[in-house]
């Protein structure tokens, strides 16, 4: 299954939840937020939410920033 992950093509095994995607990305336990096709998927739903072919997924985190 192919998705767009943070703007880049990414291939997944079939039947992948957000939780398992995060695990594959070695981001388990890190504070991240996930958006699928512009909808935020709450952390509590990550292990239930099945990704679909062509989903546009954004995984974001906090970095240093002031203005700009």
């Amino acid at each position: 299954m192919n998705i767009i992950l943070n703007g880049e093509p990414h291939t997944l095994t079939e039947q992948c939840t957000i939780g398992s995607l995060i695990e594959q990305l070695e981001l388990t336990g890190k504070r991240v937020a996930v958006e699928v096709n512009l909808d935020i998927i709450p952390r509590s739903e990550h292990n239930k939410h099945q990704l679909q072919e062509n989903d546009k997924v954004e995984v974001v985190h906090a970095i240093g920033g002031g203005a700009v």
């Binding site: 992950l5 943070n6 880049e8 981001l27 504070r31 974001v60 985190h61 906090a62 920033g65």
Partner: peptide, 16 residues
């Protein structure tokens, strides 16, 4: 703080 894309596959252990 700013919100940006997580670096996929790069330095998973970099300080947060």
């Amino acid at each position: 703080i700013a919100i940006r894309r997580s670096n996929i596959g790069q330095n998973p252990d970099e300080p947060n």
